[in-house]
């Protein structure tokens, strides 16, 4: 059963254009000029029950606007959508009982209260009877391993603990669908990993359908089976993570500073993008050569500095566009 259905979803914004200088400011007060920004420009997709699906896209691609429409905060300019068979535009309150939302790092929690008291507050918001709420909270504490900090005021928690509490708080009413807008933004790798584990666990334990957004593919590589890439308000790609990985996430950028020059020109799967003396920038095709394969080619003594990175999302998107044109 499709839990989320979106068809031709569009959202346009009018943005005031301001010219420079005092003259421009005056002009914009007297005769404001607007330009239309198509934040979401006709997207179609379905999400099945129990899926973890990621919305990936650069900043301003329309991810948050989509989530805001699906949760009933914004009404679409046109198009249709259903979440759990409810039209968010018409039945926001009814839907609210069945979905959970976490908006990035916007704090929903009371900072001076413990996560436990916060959970109690959210149970009241969702009309959960006292006793049932307590049982649920006990259960969550066990399942999501919150014992260590559930009785510490939120303001004294580490960032990672806080976000974990934040996410669990949004689960208190056992939503069927959970929307997570950039849950891992600005977190360090260890915390990110923690959050990922938490998300995976709630998907498994509670069978929660999860739609999350991110601007970083590597963030959700291990988490999602399916990915939707969105750019300029349009869906660029809706595919399995496996395919995405194979077709587009197959490249790594390797920057090297060496003592002595090495020639990689003839190696298969390695592309030399830039070469300046002993400074090299390589692109490897991980289908042919893994990172460890490449490292074997270099004597560790010879390395002054090394930097390995993923291809940026913008590049992946432009690759996908190129692919389509072919």
């Amino acid at each position: 059963m499709a839990v989320i259905e979106a068809k031709g979803l569009k959202k346009e914004f009018k943005v005031k254009v301001k010219e420079k200088g005092i003259k421009g400011s005056l002009k914009s007060i007297l005769r404001p000029k607007y330009k239309i920004v198509k934040a979401v420009n006709g997207i179609d997709f379905n999400v099945e029950e129990g899926e973890i699906i990621a919305f990936i896209g650069p900043n301003g691609a329309g991810k948050s606007t989509t989530i805001k429409m699906l949760t009933g905060i914004l009404y679409p300019s046109s198009g249709e959508m259903k979440v759990l068979d409810i039209d968010p535009t018409k039945n926001r309150k009814k839907l609210a009982y069945k979905i959970g939302t976490v908006f990035g790092q916007k704090e929903q929690l009371w900072m001076h209260l413990t996560p436990y008291d916060n959970f109690k507050f959210f149970s009241a918001i969702y009309d959960i009877p006292e006793k049932e709420a307590e049982e649920r909270i006990e259960n969550f504490i066990k399942v999501f391993e919150l014992e260590k900090f559930v009785n510490t005021p939120v303001r004294n928690l580490s960032l990672g603990q806080r976000i974990r509490a934040e996410i669990v708080a949004s689960l208190i009413h056992e939503p069927k669908v959970l929307f997570l807008d950039e849950p891992t933004i600005g977190l360090d790798p260890i915390v990110k990993d923690n959050i990922r584990k938490l998300i995976k666990k709630m998907n498994k334990e509670l069978n929660t359908t999860i739609l999350l957004t991110s601007h970083d593919v590597s963030d959700i590589e291990k988490l999602c089976k399916r990915v939707i890439i969105i750019n300029n308000g349009e869906i660029v790609l809706d595919d399995s993570m496996q395919n995405l990985k194979y077709n587009y996430l197959n490249k790594k950028i390797l920057e090297l500073r060496l003592k002595d020059k090495i020639n990689f020109e003839k190696e298969e799967g390695i592309d030399v993008i830039k070469e300046k003396g002993t400074n090299l920038k390589l692109e490897l095709d991980t289908r042919i050569k893994s990172i460890s394969d490449v490292l074997k080619l270099i004597d560790p003594e010879n390395i002054i500095d090394i930097n390995i990175s993923n291809t940026p999302l913008e590049e992946i998107i432009s690759d996908i566009y190129k692919e389509e044109r072919k």
């Binding site: 805001k68 009933g72 905060i73 009814k94 609210a96 939302t101 908006f103 916007k106 918001i125 009309d127």
Partner: peptide, 14 residues
């Protein structure tokens, strides 16, 4: 207002 809009309560009162 967004955070009140996703709660099943009256937005103004909340």
């Amino acid at each position: 207002l967004d955070s009140y809009l996703v709660q099943p309560k009256n937005v103004l009162i909340s």
